[in-house]
Computed example of a mutant assay.
Amino acid sequence: MINQYLTIKELTENVGGKVTPRMVRHYHTLGLLPPAQRSSGNYRLYTQQDAQRLRRIVALKEQGFQLSHIQQLLKNDSDTEVNSTLMTQLQQQYQAVIEQISRLRQTAAALEGVLGRDQHCQTLQANVLAQLRLLEVETQGGLQELEQLWQNLDTAISSHPEAFEESLQHLLPELGDRSEIEIDLLSQLVLACGDVSIVNFVRISKNAIAAARHGMLAQCQIVGDIPAVTAMLDQTRLAHLGCQITTLIDNPHVTDVVEAEQAFWQQSTWSKNLEKIEPQSILMIGYAPSILMWVCEAISLHQIQPALVVGMPIGFSHAPAAKRQLIRSGIPYITIEKTNYGGFLAAVVINALAKSLIDKPDCHCYLQSL
């Protein structure tokens, strides 16, 4: 008969090796795990229910929840007061995380100010770094000296244009496993929003680049969710490729995410427009998350069959859910696992893909990563 119990080592292996025996014992101390049964040799023994509870703890911890919050979540208590307390604690944790992100963003900006300099500034850059090592900031005079260093470094930029490609070489993470076209697409997204960290959140399905190029070569239809998105498209290049541009919510007064979401629920014409979309079109959803969710549902029911979906709506609850649904849809996709940016970057994606197709029609580097 197979032993129904797990040792603490087997327990940690059962949950994928993401915790150590020491962490398990710590969870016992905090009350996250109930007391374990003991063997005749006084070793801890665990059941599959214990393993399932530990997997829940690990999953919630990886999502960013603190252990004290996980403890309350695992109580499965529907008491209103407890839920209200937990919501307050989660709001406090959220604000603390935002403050930490702000501090890290300041650090990143300082590093970008040094690393992002081009060759014209390298001599002055070396002098600044040398002076930073000797800087004393205990007094107000020291702070003024630091400000003067940045002013000296900034003065050097007025004599020449910024070398964006050189800056990106210093700042972008290692992208050796990406195709040339994909690297260009990521670079264009960074240059569009000025946020290098966005590279870590961009999700491109394996066949997305191929689907976009094949669709554009076949003069596919480009469909945006609102006019504010399609207005940012490179009309000249797309016309050169023979791609027709159309809009689901064809209302020029809908210009932001709030209006786009309201139009989704209050109007019905957009759904009729979606039904008219040609097969193998490219859809770009840049504002309304509910439209992206509806698109994913229509795809699952085989009501529409786009070649590619660029899903980058803005939102704090619906948008992340819609993007996850897109990733699971099986349709080629490009999305960003963040709540911001939206329509502008959706248009940047289409423009970058169109430009690369015209500039490098015979490039097949993107097929090597499939």
Score class of each variant (00 low, 15 high):
32 L>V: 03
32 L>R: 06
33 L>C: 05
33 L>F: 04
34 P>E: 11
34 P>K: 10
35 P>W: 04
36 A>W: 05
36 A>C: 13
38 R>M: 10
38 R>D: 03
38 R>H: 09
39 S>V: 06
39 S>Q: 08
40 S>M: 07
40 S>Q: 13
41 G>C: 01
41 G>Y: 06
43 Y>I: 08
43 Y>L: 11
43 Y>R: 14
44 R>C: 09
45 L>M: 15
45 L>G: 04
47 T>S: 15
47 T>I: 04
47 T>R: 15
47 T>V: 07
48 Q>T: 12
49 Q>Y: 07
49 Q>P: 00
49 Q>I: 12
50 D>S: 09
50 D>C: 07
50 D>E: 12
50 D>T: 08
51 A>H: 12
52 Q>T: 12
52 Q>W: 06
52 Q>Y: 06
53 R>M: 10
53 R>V: 07
55 R>K: 14
55 R>C: 01
56 R>P: 00
56 R>N: 14
57 I>M: 10
57 I>S: 11
57 I>V: 14
58 V>M: 08
58 V>G: 03
59 A>C: 06
60 L>W: 08
61 K>F: 02
61 K>N: 14
61 K>Q: 15
61 K>V: 00
62 E>Q: 15
63 Q>K: 13
63 Q>F: 08
63 Q>E: 05
64 G>F: 08
64 G>R: 11
65 F>A: 02
68 S>M: 02
68 S>Y: 02
68 S>N: 06
69 H>C: 12
70 I>Y: 01
70 I>R: 01
70 I>Q: 03
71 Q>I: 01
71 Q>P: 00
71 Q>H: 13
73 L>I: 15
74 L>P: 04
75 K>L: 13
75 K>S: 08
77 D>L: 11
77 D>F: 12
77 D>H: 07
78 S>E: 12
78 S>G: 11
80 T>L: 14
81 E>A: 14
81 E>Q: 12
81 E>H: 09
83 N>R: 15
83 N>C: 12
86 L>R: 06
87 M>S: 11
88 T>W: 00
90 L>Q: 15
90 L>C: 13
91 Q>T: 07
92 Q>T: 13
93 Q>K: 11
94 Y>F: 10
94 Y>M: 11
96 A>V: 03
96 A>P: 01
96 A>F: 02
97 V>G: 00
97 V>Q: 14
98 I>M: 14
99 E>S: 14
99 E>R: 15
99 E>C: 03
100 Q>A: 10
100 Q>H: 10
101 I>F: 02
101 I>A: 03
103 R>G: 00
103 R>Y: 04
103 R>E: 10
104 L>N: 13
105 R>F: 00
105 R>T: 15
105 R>V: 03
106 Q>I: 10
106 Q>M: 10
106 Q>N: 14
108 A>M: 13
108 A>K: 14
109 A>V: 03
109 A>R: 14
109 A>H: 12
109 A>T: 12
109 A>W: 09
111 L>Y: 11
112 E>V: 02
112 E>P: 01
112 E>C: 05
112 E>M: 03
114 V>A: 02
114 V>K: 01
116 G>F: 06
117 R>G: 04
118 D>P: 01
